[in-house]
Amino acid sequence: MSIQVENNLRNVESKEVFEQKAHYVPCKIEEDGPANVDKYFEPYVLEEDGDLTASFRGYPLDGTKMTLPEGYRAVVITEAKRPLAEDAERKFQVAGGFKDFTYWNWDKKPSKNDNLVKALDWIDISDAIHGD
């Protein structure tokens, strides 16, 4: 299987498309596609002394802003149509990206013990092991 990623946004003037807003929600949502984040979620995000709160499907969320580790960037890619054959070449399109995101926990203040924060330890460790 080979993978080809096309970046049609390479020459896009505005940076916005690569600085989109992203939320990491503590819930598996069986859906892949656009969502009404600006209407159904963001109006309800409250900030008090740097602590964020919000609500998803009635569940209380506690959040914090996170930036990607240095040297990393997030890119969103989409596939228009997955080929039927297993070994056929697959084509992806760059749809945008983000530099920072909001990390949300369900009814629990975000801390350094959260799995995602701990998982990012690996980036430094792997660099120490495998880096130059």
């Binding site: 859906e31 969502a35 159904y40 309800y44 609500s55 009635g58 569940y59």
Partner: peptide, 11 residues
């Protein structure tokens, strides 16, 4: 489909 209901609703 994703967010369920407006906030008027008791989920």
């Amino acid at each position: 489909n994703v967010f369920g209901y407006p906030m008027l609703v008791r989920f």
